[in-house]
């Protein structure tokens, strides 16, 4: 690990003040729990002049009920999310996904906003400075080619946050604040398919809260496949919500992570719903997943294995939810 860069720590009391600080200070970075940001900084991947510590902003630390859902502050820790009463009843999918993230100790400080904005990961990027340098760096960090896809023009690092697919299934929107004002967008519009520039945030823009809707009459589950049972990022993570019983499928929502440079909200599932869901349906579901995911050589596990896992797990997950 590298020696930490010289920076000053700024401690705003409100989201607005944080955004003002970010607009005034060049090369500043927001820090929530810091469980991913700190290792990245220690590996020399982040060299901010100022770190804006979000832990003192009370308005970002609560979970509030809205009309038909919840407003979850971005600084709510994963542990708070898992044990919150509001989550246990109608949003158990979020708690299920959050419980798979990192380890118990990390979850005490790691936050919802941090996981939603989690930096994309790659075996050629999450390495020490001397390792990256001896490999001529890469597109995401000071280099000119992506070692995962050398002929391509964009970085293929994989988005690895576990909450995003579960939030997408709940129709999540995100509240963003910058010095220019506040806006609310769909969570899926926060991301783009470019590992080096995966978040569509304006400079200095801060994620303040996530808004989710209740799913009436759906059965939900999250499955994560990883090398280590604890403290590991997903090779593939799949969140699903199913409305239906036995072989009848009324509605289906699927979100995937770990396969692309952004979390994938599976499109075209409406065509599979509204009738009997049999082997033809499962085949069609596999085809949708097959077409929309793009696992690359960004992890030690080969991409064809992750593709196969994504197909099998999505089939099994939807099948199990329908049966039970």
């Amino acid at each position: 690990m590298e020696v930490l860069p010289d920076f000053e720590i700024l401690c705003p009391n409100s989201a607005e003040e944080a955004a003002q600080m970010a607009s005034k200070k060049g090369e500043s970075r927001y820090m929530a729990g810091g469980t991913d940001f700190m290792p990245n900084m220690r590996r020399g991947l982040e060299k901010p002049k100022a770190v804006i510590d979000l832990s003192g902003i009370g308005e970002m630390q609560s979970i509030e009920k809205t009309g038909n859902g919840l407003r979850i502050g971005a600084s709510v820790t994963l542990q708070q999310l898992i044990s919150a009463d509001e989550i246990k009843s109608d949003f158990s999918l979020l708690a299920e996904a959050a419980e798979t993230i990192a380890g118990t100790t990390h979850r005490q400080t790691a936050t919802v906003g941090g996981n939603v904005c989690l930096d994309t990961r790659c075996q050629f990027y999450n390495q020490s400075e001397w390792w990256r340098k001896s490999n001529d760096y890469c597109l995401k960090y000071e280099g000119e080619i992506c070692h995962v896809a050398p002929t391509g023009k964009i970085c293929r690092a994989a988005f690895s946050g576990d909450l995003a697919p579960a939030l997408m299934v709940h129709g999540a929107k995100v509240e963003l604040t910058s010095a220019k004002g506040t806006r609310t967008i769909d969570l899926k519009d926060l991301y783009q398919e470019d590992g080096a520039d995966y978040l569509l945030l304006e400079p200095g823009e801060l994620l303040v809260a996530v808004l989710v809707e209740k799913l009436e009459g759906y059965k939900t589950a999250y499955r994560k496949v990883r090398v280590r049972g604890g403290v590991d990022f997903p090779l593939v993570g799949i969140a699903a919500a199913v409305k239906g019983n036995g072989t009848q499928l009324e509605d289906l929502r699927v979100g995937l992570t770990g396969t692309n440079s952004k979390p994938v909200s599976l499109e075209g599932t409406a065509d599979l719903c509204g009738g009997s869901f049999d082997e033809t349906g499962f085949k069609a579901l596999e085809k949708l997943v097959q077409k929309q995911i793009q696992p690359m050589r960004s992890t030690f596990s080969p991409s064809h294995y992750r593709r196969k896992v994504a197909l099998n797990v999505s089939r099994r997950l939807v099948g199990n939810l329908l049966e039970n």
Partner: peptide, 24 residues
């Protein structure tokens, strides 16, 4: 491990476990 993966630096902050190598 020096990177938040092994837990050897676990301490308690206000009674909750926290990794001292990932905390400023």
């Amino acid at each position: 491990c020096d990177g938040g993966e092994c837990g050897a630096c676990t301490i308690l902050v206000n009674d909750a476990p926290q990794l001292a190598c990932l905390t400023l």
